[in-house]
Structure formats: C-alpha cells, structure tokens
Design a protein around this nucleic acid. Structure first.
Lengths: 204, 204
DNA sequence: TCGTAAAGTTGCGCGTACGCAAGATTGCGT
DNA sequence: ACGCAATCTTGCGTACGCGCAACTTTACGA
C-alpha cells in the first residue's frame, strides 16, 4: 500500500542522510554545510530542513535508520518474558551484524556533537516500544514509563561506549553488547513486576 | 567560599531568566526576541547565549531554577527506603508550595515550545540524582541508569500534566502529584531491587 | 479523463546559535 | 599595592532553523 508519494519521501530521506554521511566522512563533520548536503542529494536547502532539523541528525540517521522500530518488532515477536524479550531485542538490534557502518561509527565516536546526537537518537525508541509494551502490561502510562526507562538505559550505554576516555582513572568501555546488558539489568525488576501485575492500581 | 565572580554570574543568570519570563508573560512567548531579554537584563545579546542556548531555556529556568539539586538533597536527607525517598522527594519538590510561578506555568502550558523545554528540563535531574543514588546502591552504572529512569518518568508526568487535551477521548490529566506518583510507581521495583542487592556483578 | 483537494518543494526573510579574538574584570601571589 | 593569569563580556561574521506563501506534484472521486 505504498503510494508513489511515500516512496519518494523515503528516497529523498535516505538520499539526504547518506549524502550527509558520505560528505562528513570525506571532509570531516565540521566542514560540511547543509547546503552541500542538499546539493548532493539534489534538493533545495530548505527541503533538507523539512527532513532533518540538524546536520547531526541526518548523519546519525544513516546509521540508525529504523533500528528503533526493529527493536519493537523483535520484542513483539519474542516468546520470552518481557524483560528477556526487551534485553535480547535491544542487544540484537544494536549490534550491527556486518558492521557495514564501521567508519561511520568511528566518525561518530570522534565528534562530540555527533556523539550527543547518536545518544539522543535512543529516545526514538520510546514511541514504538511504548506500543509493544502496552500489549503486555495492563496500564498504559506504565508502558510509557518503562519504554522511556529502557530508552534512557540504551542512551547511557551508547554514551559509555562512545566515550573516548575523559575520566580520570576508570575506563569502563567494554563491548557494546555488555554495556547494553549492564545498563538494562537494573530495569529488569521493573519490567518483570509490570508484567506480573494483573491489573493496575495506585498501589499505596 | 563564594567569590565575587561567582555571585555576579548567578546574578546575571537570574536577571536574564526573570527578564525572559516577565517579557514572555507580557508580550507572549513568540513576541520576545533574545535582544529584548538581553537589553532588559543589561547585558549584550552575545552574553545571553553564554548562559542560555535558547529562549525557552531561559524562561523555563525561571520556574525550575535549582529544583533538580533540591530533589537530590531531599533524597540524601531522607531516612526512608530508596524508593520512598525518591518518590517523596520528587513529589515534594515538583509541587510548588506557594505556586508563586502560577502564571508562568500557565504560560508554559500554553506554548508548545515551552512545554517541550519544560519537560526536557527534567533531564537535569540525572547528574545530581546519580550522585545520591550512588551512595545507596552498590554499582555505579546502576545508579546512573536508575537516575535516568526516574528523570524520564518525571518528564512523562510533566508532559501529561501540561498536555491541553489533544487526545481523541481519554483526558487523564489529574493533579501533578498524582501524575508523578503514577509515573514513578513502575520504577519502584527497580529501585528496591537495586538497594537490596548487596554487591554488583555482571549477572550471567 | 479531468478537476480538485491534499501533500510536498522551494525561495525569502527574520531571528537564533556559536566560534573567534580583542578588550574588560576578577582572583591571587608577592 | 602591584601585576600577572584566569575568566568573563562583547562585537563580528557565518551558518542554521523555521514560519510563510507561492508553486508543483500526487492522489482520488466523478
């Protein structure tokens, strides 16, 4: 049911983001103007801003694309308990199989602005994840809070992973899957409890 | 140990934010330029951007000021269990006693941009809250994740509270304290579990 | 097939965000 | 009391973000 309109939008969207990524890799993130990206994608600069509201957003999108909705889909498809389903879905989807975007991730790690934007992109998990969680937990608001908590945990894992060194002494940076599991671990009790609870009430 | 320098910075900061709030209330949020705010506070427009990176941020700061650090202080001072301490601290600090900022909050409710900025300000809870939680839970990263989860819950409560109606049918908007308690409730198991756990380990 | 409504694109203009470097102010050691 | 170093303020220049209104393209019913 994909009309021509929809496909064209998707096309220019990916054209813009891949152009942004390519130019950023070539000339460095700071030496790419929005006008360059727009020109490379064959649209006007104004149109660029109809799709992305910042240069960083476009570059990051090239790496994340629709990872967020894939996480939600994986959770929905999982037969496991809520907590396990979420953890496994996140770890799987955030671990690039072929690492096709290897140099892109290196680029992101290098630039502070890109690191921020990348971590922030985890927030995009909230809407789709809220929807799937709502299918498994009784209370609507609960689903939203848990989705936000998971998104925040993912964000923190990404931050830690992308962190160069900074800290005075302790450098924790492990592998991304480990960081994700560690960040999600504290939320497991909340996910389990939400699933177990049969009906919502104010608790007291 | 407050030098003159520090006090002056604080002074211009509050001067800017209260000027921003006053002008926004008088002329409407959209009819205030940063030049106006800077002029009202007696500094250059450029200096304004050394303190706040957007008009919304300045206005919101006038309402929140250092609410975030007060929450952290309240948690630290509480003799209760972690979960209760956090919930009570948040509810107390986010419920304005005199509602001195009543018309400011009305203003924020009205403007979409301000609502977004207000909800986003909940993120400022993370750093101070991480620090206090680290005193009560064994694992460092765990404290950070829980703090982020709490901040996200607060953000969601603020969003729901500030929402006009929007939704097709259900209008949930209760009182802010109730919304905060409801939003934090799903995280209680996580907070309790984190406190109970004697020593951290990688799990599997 | 055609006409109209819905959605997308573009140029324009205003206001904003911020790096940079020069000048002003404060902190501190002597 | 003096002077240097650290910090803050400011003007300037460049690029960005986005509302607006005109124009183009797509969708869809008659």
């Amino acid at each position: 049911m994909t009309g021509l309109r929809e496909r064209k939008k998707q096309a220019t969207r990916t054209a813009l983001s891949s152009a942004a990524l390519r130019l950023a890799v070539e000339h460095g993130p700071e030496n790419v103007r929005v006008d360059d990206i727009a020109e490379a994608a064959g649209v006007s600069p104004r149109t660029y801003n109809n799709y992305f509201s910042s240069r960083e957003e476009a570059i990051v999108f090239a790496v994340t694309s629709d990872r967020e909705s894939r996480v939600a889909a994986a959770v929905r498809a999982s037969p496991a308990g809520l907590a396990d389903a979420v953890v496994e879905a996140v770890v799987t989807q955030y671990t690039e199989p072929g690492e096709e975007a290897r140099e892109a991730l290196l680029l992101i790690t290098t630039s502070p602005a890109l690191r921020t934007a990348y971590a922030r992109s985890a927030t995009a998990l909230e809407p789709p994840l809220t929807e799937v969680l709502a299918e498994r937990v009784p209370d609507g608001p609960t689903a939203r809070v848990l989705a936000a908590a998971v998104a925040a945990a993912v964000r923190i894992a990404l931050e830690q992973w992308a962190q160069p060194v900074t800290s005075g002494f302790v450098v924790v940076s492990g592998s991304l899957p480990d960081l994700l599991r560690s960040a999600l671990a504290p939320l497991v009790p909340a996910l389990t409890a939400a699933q177990a609870r049969p009906a919502a009430d104010s608790g007291s």
